[in-house]
C-alpha cells in the first residue's frame, strides 16, 4: 500500500536557554495514502510538534521524515516551501486566512503562487467554496466571517490544489460543537471525494469519532494507535 507519510525514529528536543525540552521521542509512524488520521493526547504531548515536523515547518532533532517519498528532514528551505506549496495543505486552529484578501482571494492565493492562470483559479475557487458552503460570502474579508466560516475557507484553500496531504492542528478548537461537527463532516467529505490524506489533532472526543485511525500521544511518545474503520 502506498504511504504518504513515514516517520522513522523521529525526536524533537526544544532548547530553552539551558533546559532541553523533549517534545517528541523516537516516533515511528506510517500513514498510508487516503488515510484520515487523528492525533490525540493531553496538552503538551507533542501533537502540534509532530504535525509541524511532517509539514516541514520545523526540523527534527533526530530521525527521518518522508512525505510522498521525499525526505522532508533533509530538504533546504526553498525546497520545503515548494513542497508545502504543491503537496501539503495546512489548517490551523485560528488566524488561518490572510486578512487583506477576501475569502475567494484567500482560496486563490495558493494557486496564484503555483502559477495557475486566472480563469482556472477563479473557477476552481468558486467550485470549492460552493462545496464548503461559502459561495455567497466569497467577497468578504476574514474579519467579516464567523470562526466556523473562516475555518471552512481555510479547508477550501488547503484542498483546492489537491495536495497529497492536509495537516490540521486542532481545526475545531475555536468552534462550538455543532460547527465543529459540520467541519469534520466537511473534512471527511474532502477525504473521500478528493482523495486527500488527512492528519488532524484534537482534544475533542466528538472529533476523534470521525477518524478512521486514532493515534494517542503522551509525553512525546505514541502510546496507542488504533484503526477504527
Amino acid at each position: 500500500m502506498e504511504t504518504t507519510v513515514v516517520c522513522r525514529g523521529v525526536s524533537k528536543i526544544y532548547r530553552q536557554d539551558t533546559v532541553a525540552v523533549p517534545a517528541l521521542t523516537d516516533i515511528d509512524l506510517e500513514i498510508p495514502k487516503l488515510d484520515f488520521v487523528c492525533l490525540s493526547g493531553p496538552s503538551g504531548s507533542g501533537k502540534s510538534t509532530l504535525l509541524n515536523l511532517i509539514g516541514g515547518l520545523d526540523a527534527p532533532t533526530a530521525g527521518e521524515i518522508e512525505v510522498d517519498g521525499q525526505r522532508v528532514d533533509k530538504m533546504e528551505k526553498g525546497a520545503l516551501a515548494d513542497l508545502r506549496l504543491r503537496k501539503i495543505g495546512f489548517v490551523f486552529q485560528a488566524y488561518n486566512l490572510i486578512p487583506v484578501l477576501t475569502a475567494r482571494e484567500n482560496v486563490e492565493f495558493v494557486m496564484q503562487l503555483q502559477g495557475v492562470g486566472a480563469e482556472e483559479r477563479t473557477r476552481k475557487a468558486r467550485k470549492i467554496l460552493k462545496e464548503v458552503g461559502i459561495e455567497e460570502l466569497e467577497n468578504r474579508r476574514p474579519g467579516e466571517l464567523s470562526g466556523g466560516q473562516q475555518q471552512r475557507v481555510a479547508v477550501a484553500r488547503a484542498i483546492v490544489s489537491e495536495p497529497s496531504l492536509v495537516l490540521a492542528d486542532e481545526p475545531t478548537a475555536n468552534l462550538d460543537s455543532k460547527t465543529a461537527e459540520n467541519l469534520m463532516q466537511l473534512l471527511r467529505h474532502m477525504n473521500r471525494e478528493h482523495g486527500v490524506t488527512f492528519v488532524f489533532s484534537t482534544h475533542d472526543k466528538l472529533v476523534m469519532e470521525f477518524s478512521r485511525r486514532l493515534i494517542t500521544l503522551r509525553d512525546g511518545r505514541i502510546v496507542d494507535d488504533v484503526r477504527r474503520d
Partner: peptide, 15 residues
C-alpha cells in the same frame, strides 16, 4: 503571525 502563515502556505521568503 501572518508571515508565518505565508511560509506555511509555501510562499517563498523572497516573495
Amino acid at each position: 503571525r501572518e508571515f508565518g502563515l505565508f511560509q506555511a502556505l509555501g510562499m517563498p521568503p523572497r516573495l
